[in-house]
Design a protein around this nucleic acid. Structure first.
Lengths: 160, 160
DNA sequence: GACAGTGAGTCAAGCTGCTTTACTTGATGG
DNA sequence: CCATCAAGTAAAGCAGCTTGACTCACTGTC
């Protein structure tokens, strides 16, 4: 149980600040753990790519939209991932210049590992929070997101 | 009131994802509003600098520590802010090569404006959340931060 | 009172991940 | 045909940081 602190800055902190701090800490911890199991050569954005492609293969322009970057940037990311054997560029069934991005087994393996790490982390966080469950936090966040977006969720991007 | 949606992805989303999304949305909204009142030439990191210097002037090495960057990077940020008239480098009372970074009135004016924008934004968010108050969200975030940090808060940095 | 050590600051170069601009390539409709 | 359009690629540029190497002012030590 956390002892009461004098001069605790957190209760007075802005919501925005709390959000940033919490996100940074959780993501950093996630990164560290992913690196610790030997998957440190992939950044979170690569995980995002894998998650997007896992459901259904898309073209790199669609990927760019989903990531919220230019198609050139998406192309560079794909170049890198292709070079390292995580994705392939297959000819698109609809023809044209399009290419379908498909995941290799290496990518799916990473996705599985990263998913386990993430769930373990969140479970640990829930455990360590003795009294407070994470549920109200989740619903609060979801409500906040809803009020700021309307129906469709924008791409998750670095904003700093 | 938000209608119930079919296939709402939010309840199934990872906590980490919710945090990132919420932070991004709130910060983007804050940025837009700050830009809308004509203060768009300053990024959040500059606001962080101003906040740090407002309490008590520090040297640029201390600033670097607080920001979590190298002292060269802090120096570059200060160069920029000095050029644009937001900070001065005053001789340090303790002598040496040190210089004290002090805010100009322009910086304090920005700080006041940005503070108002931030509080207005958070108040609006609270209002729009009809039933749910933001209080449980704040306490949940604070608890999460506490379990991840121990006593002293690390610098708030881009982590993507 | 020289003199190695220390810590703040600075100069310069390099790197990463993106953007902007400009182009090529294949499909489509008049 | 050919104008047009969308997907993709190529090249250059840029912002914001880092690493490495240095200068300068002060500190102790003998």
């Amino acid at each position: 149980m956390n002892p009461v602190r004098r001069d605790d800055p957190l209760p007075e902190a802005e919501l925005t600040f709390l959000l940033g701090m919490a996100f940074q800490l959780v993501l950093a911890e996630f990164n560290d753990r992913v690196a610790a199991v030997g998957e440190g050569d992939l950044r979170p954005v690569h995980g995002m790519v894998f998650q997007l492609l896992a459901r259904t293969p898309v073209t790199s322009s669609e990927l760019a939209e989903r990531l919220g970057v230019t198609k050139q940037a998406a192309g560079q990311i794909v170049d890198d991932l292709e070079r390292r054997g995580y994705v392939r560029r297959d000819p698109h069934p609809a023809g044209g210049r399009r290419k379908l991005l498909v995941l290799t087994d290496a990518a799916r393996a990473h996705l599985a590992v990263a998913g386990r790490v993430l769930h373990t982390l969140e479970a640990e966080l829930a455990d360590r929070q003795e009294g407070a469950t994470l549920a109200p936090l989740r619903t609060g966040l979801a409500a906040l997101i809803r009020t700021l977006t309307g129906d469709d969720l924008p791409p998750l991007r670095p904003v700093w």
